[in-house]
């Protein structure tokens, strides 16, 4: 296999890892807790900006980009900080947006939050360099591992895979625990869960914050690979790609979310690049967004549980034990 093909395939694998992580974060919020977070992409962006700023160093007056803060933190601190940034932002947004709002209203507020975030970051140029975004973000551990470009890229694939595994263990642990059962109960019937003594506000916020932290981590992995990040990379439609992935793969199922990440943001969006150009410029891109929307609608209509449906959990019926004193069965 040629070097160019290896670069391409390894790039896709890194994107797959990032998307799988993001889909697991969204699945925790949407699939398990039933939160319609249309601002999901801003948590990934927050993580990306945090990791970038914490590796770029302090801006100098001669620098072509301006941003707040700046440090040269060693790996893995920028990744951890990105997860914390995603969590803190989620806590802030969730504390306001989740307390009283539900369903449609919650979705509307989240969508507006996403639009506001893009507008603020684009126009407050001193924050993270506005529309131009941040560039020349140094890759992690490059000076430590001493690898050539191709070998380093495969190393980064391994690093992404390791972080994916870590995220999987976290979400698997949560969804398989009593907390996961409470989240599902809340999703299915919130008043009933509250009546059984569950603090639903706390549960919703917990799912929102953990999902935000995972999104932040995925953003850090992406920005350290790309070495650049700008508002164009996290416009609100990107959230709908992740939603479609979770719906297609199977919400409420971590394997389903991973399958959705493979099929929608990676396979489908990448397959579009291979279409021969036709029609006016931008037509293929527009069709792609239409197909993403149709895909979500078709699956919600015909296969609402997705390709890998959520496992129906059945509890064994308690059968009273019979003792010898009861006598023989008749």
């Amino acid at each position: 296999m040629s070097g160019a093909w290896q670069f391409y395939i390894s790039t896709l694998l890194i994107y797959l890892g990032v998307d799988v992580m993001a889909c697991w974060g969204l699945n925790l919020q949407f699939g398990y807790a039933g939160l319609v977070n249309f601002s999901f992409i801003i948590f990934q962006a927050a993580g990306a900006y945090t990791a970038a700023v914490l590796t770029l160093g302090r801006p100098t007056p001669a620098d072509f980009q301006t941003y707040v803060g700046g440090a040269h933190w060693p790996f893995p601190l920028p990744f951890l900080a990105a997860a914390v940034a995603g969590a803190l932002l989620a806590a802030g947004v969730g504390a306001i947006g989740l307390r009283r709002l539900r369903a449609d209203y919650e979705a509307m507020v989240m969508l507006v939050v996403s639009l506001i975030a893009t507008s603020v970051v684009t126009n407050a140029t001193g924050l993270v360099n506005g529309a131009n975004g941040l560039d020349l973000v140094p890759p992690p551990l490059l000076g430590v591992v001493h690898l050539g470009p191709l070998a380093y890229q495969w190393f980064y694939v391994g690093l992404t895979a390791a972080l994916c595994l870590l995220v999987y263990l976290v979400v698997h642990r949560i969804t398989g625990s009593p907390l996961g059962r409470s989240l599902r109960a809340m999703r299915e019937n919130e008043p009933a869960a509250a009546a059984l003594g569950r603090n639903v506000t706390q549960l919703r916020l917990a799912a929102f914050v953990v999902g935000g932290a995972i999104a932040g981590l995925s953003g850090a992995v992406l920005v350290q690979f790309l070495s650049a990040w700008s508002p164009g990379a996290w416009l609100y439609p990107e959230t709908f790609v992740y939603f479609t992935a979770v719906i297609v793969g199977g919400s409420g199922n971590n394997l389903g979310a991973a399958v959705g990440a493979l099929l929608v943001p990676v396979a489908f969006l990448e397959a579009v690049r291979f279409l021969p150009p036709f029609g006016p410029p931008g037509l293929i891109d527009a069709i792609q967004w239409i197909v993403i929307g149709l895909l979500a609608m078709v699956f919600l209509w015909f296969w609402p549980r997705g390709i890998v449906p959520e496992r129906r959990r059945r509890f064994p019926r308690r059968i009273p034990s019979r003792s010898a004193a009861d006598g023989p069965a008749r």
Partner: peptide
């Protein structure tokens, strides 16, 4: 597509 995340792949 005018952004680094799409341009790199």
């Amino acid at each position: 597509r005018g952004d680094p995340a799409d341009a790199v792949p």
